[in-house]
Design a protein around this nucleic acid. Structure first.
Lengths: 168, 168
DNA sequence: CCAGATATGACAATATATTGTCATAAGATG
DNA sequence: CATCTTATGACAATATATTGTCATATCTGG
């Protein structure tokens, strides 16, 4: 990931940049979790939990989301999400109930208390955090950065699913 | 992190994009670790370990790097790195020795076996992995993506260090 | 309808990541 | 030189993340 010595050819320059890109992605994600979780620490939340609350805030999620669907949306494993959800249930931010439509499944909803913490206390801090990190970014910058991450994400998803074209 | 309903103003559009950006960053990092670690799984490595080996491969790192310096370079905690390094030492990829210049400190070097695994087996797979994820990226795209991540990283570092301008 | 395939939560194991604390070592300052 | 401050690895606790496995539930196709 960190710098690998190159000899200046075009292909090697691309590799060098790729290396730097993935290394920075790694560092960025860790710094996001470090600084982001600190921003909502008083609310007893972490970045991952804010992702869950954000997902539960979406249009169409009021009646709850199954753990499986939530795991797919967040792109994390069921097992990891079960742990996340368990801690959030323990802290009263969410509730988990049996899914009446599928006896294997459980449905996650935000509690009223969770909603108050989320909307009244966490969201303002999250927005302030965004403002700070992206102080020097225009809307155009953000859109471009997002575009690149999305392209990488889609490629990694294809690799993950072992799709045609991912292995040649 | 996921979608929050907006009312169409410019500030809210920026927030919405920011939200998406951070959510994708989270997902991307997880997918990087998932697919990247799988790419070097046969070598018994993870993405985090490849970052360590990459760091130890740098010019000037042949005589070893202290755990403290490595932690700073990778932007991870000393404790986390100690765990990482311990597992890599266990697997014979690196060696750890007392630092003759500072009795508190330890120096990490790549072993000859680690070097062979890294250079002959992992690096080709890592490069193939980069080629796959970045198949549709030009050098210019990569440079731009890198630029944005770097800007975010620098901002988060400033926040982390509680520097002036990070809190207004 | 039934067999095979897939999905689900629970349980397990392991790796990664943070913060806090402590005894010891080193650096900074007057 | 003495005192205060900071750095280091070790230890601890907790959160996050993956894969594997299993019993049970559900879906799919003939």
């Amino acid at each position: 990931m960190p710098k690998v010595k190159t000899n200046g050819t075009r292909e090697e320059a691309k590799l060098e940049l790729a290396n730097r890109l993935f290394f920075r992605l790694y560092q960025c994600a860790n710094m996001l979790h470090k600084t982001g979780s600190r921003a909502v620490e008083v609310e007893g939340l972490t970045t991952q939990q804010w992702a869950v609350l954000g997902a539960l805030s979406r249009e169409g999620a009021q009646h709850g989301v199954s753990i499986g669907d939530l795991a797919k949306y967040l792109m994390v494993s069921r097992q990891n999400l079960a742990g996340l959800v368990g801690r959030m249930e323990r802290d009263g931010h969410i509730a988990v109930a049996a899914d009446t439509r599928d006896r294997r499944s459980r449905i996650v909803t935000m509690t009223a208390a969770g909603r108050r913490v989320w909307q009244d206390r966490a969201l303002p801090k999250i927005h302030a955090y965004y403002d700070k990190v992206l102080a020097d970014f225009s809307i155009n910058d953000i859109a471009h950065a997002l575009h690149y991450l999305l392209k990488m994400l889609e490629a990694m998803q294809r690799i993950d699913q072992g799709e045609p074209g991912a292995d040649d």
